[in-house]
Design a protein around this nucleic acid. Sequence first.
DNA 1: TAAAAATACTCCATAGGTATTTTAT
DNA 2: ATAAAATACCTATGGAGTATTTTTA
Lengths: 295, 295
Amino acid sequence: MELRHLRYFVAVAEQRHFGRAAERLHMAQPPLSQQIRQLEAELGVTLLTRTTRRVDLTPAGVAYLDDARQILAAVDEAGENAVRIAAGRTGRLTVGCVGSATYSLLPALAKALRSELPDVEFGFRGEMLSPDQASALHDESLDLGLLRRLPDTSGLSVQDVRRERLLVALPQDHRYADRKRLRVADLAGEGMIIHAGSGRSVMNSLIHELFAEADLEVNVVHEVAETSTLVTFIAAGLGIAVVPEPTSVLHVPGMVYVPLAGTPGVDLVAATREGDANPVLARALARLMELVATP
Amino acid sequence: MELRHLRYFVAVAEQRHFGRAAERLHMAQPPLSQQIRQLEAELGVTLLTRTTRRVDLTPAGVAYLDDARQILAAVDEAGENAVRIAAGRTGRLTVGCVGSATYSLLPALAKALRSELPDVEFGFRGEMLSPDQASALHDESLDLGLLRRLPDTSGLSVQDVRRERLLVALPQDHRYADRKRLRVADLAGEGMIIHAGSGRSVMNSLIHELFAEADLEVNVVHEVAETSTLVTFIAAGLGIAVVPEPTSVLHVPGMVYVPLAGTPGVDLVAATREGDANPVLARALARLMELVATP
DNA sequence: TAAAAATACTCCATAGGTATTTTAT
DNA sequence: ATAAAATACCTATGGAGTATTTTTA
């Protein structure tokens, strides 16, 4: 049984005439008759009653015509669907993002992707810690991660997105609030607010390193889960924090940002599963790089 | 594009190995590779990424595998469905019936058919006048009619089912109630209850003929639409009626049936559309003839 | 280097064509 | 008598086989 049989049967059933059906199929009548007989033999069912004056469908033929049409349509649709997926116009993509980019880069990317690829099902998960994104990439609950450089990136393909400078977030009435810039040494003894899940946050590790280099201890006064909480805590005067520059899009009354000089900043990178052939991924990455190139 | 391409693709996608897939398909590996390439070329899409160590599905391939499986299953199912229909195990059949057989033969037939052919959708319509059944057969709202002989049966195929004797239905307190039999002449002047839609009822015409032969007039006192109404009217003493014998299964207190002698009775016939190939029809007719043969 | 897919070619099965016969109206 | 499907037979496309090369892990 081949699709040929279904195509031929549909033609004969629609034309109710072997000769005209053969014409429509650009073939001669005898091979058409043969193929129809072959189909009936294989099914073990008479689909058409033919006399020299009439060709009619049996009840089984009526049902089979309906099914054959649906099958042929399904074959076409399957092909078109595959093309759409290959072109990255249909599909699924879940993007993860660290806290600092959750409020600026992630929404911009979401907007760009949704307008460019309306038929793709996107998922966006902000405020994810970098190692959590790495494992989410491995277990395929994430396809693209916007995260910090990690020591172990086996199985992942990583590329630079941008370097983010560091800022110190301060209450407006803090003694450093009017400074043009600060150095790590200035932060000695300050009550720091850091991210919860300390061991897994790359920013936390970086802050500890910077303090260690300056022979300082980090005086942690609060741990918070989200960046939005962090800034409200600072505005309330509960402490200060070192944050990547994009966090500064979060404006809260009673809080100021002052650049932290003497540090190289921190890299934001894009990570994907090595060898992930999802064509939507390529488009999303291209769009991401465009976004960071034109600020 | 042929089903072969789908079958081969499914095999390779499931085995993730051209060699093993070829083995499973009882063919050599090179032609299998060729057919897969042909499929990809026709679709314009890469479905599989192959290295010498790994065969993997692209995202388009994943979707196409799913569709291909469904299409192949649909092809099988379409064939099986056609076989079921051809065997008369699946399908649709609507049976019509005149009033007198509505309460005995029709339910017996319904019971027999439903148990024999559980997957057939049956429709049963009782209390139908014979000419209405004939037109219902023509417009295909009926497939099998249990009716009286009609003058015009063009386009219909008719066969005898049984001959039904005639009875006179009387109130219990009627002066004829204890008679063993009656003759048409005895009914002179009696108030008769007949079927409504007088022109279209074959029983009505027969009663008029019988009275005319005996040089009598029919004294109509009531017209009713249904046999069940007829018997309640008679039990209430509103008149008498001539009915076919099967009507006597309707027992109502206060009413008796007395045979009407000197008449040949009336034929019940089965009518179908000429050339109706519905296999369920053949089964239903066979079952019907069995039923009337073993009373 | 070894396993597996791709290539190159050969062959034959069968889809499709041509000529003719059969059949039903 | 005629239109149309079936039959008989032939042709040739292309699906499948064998031998070999290429590729990559």
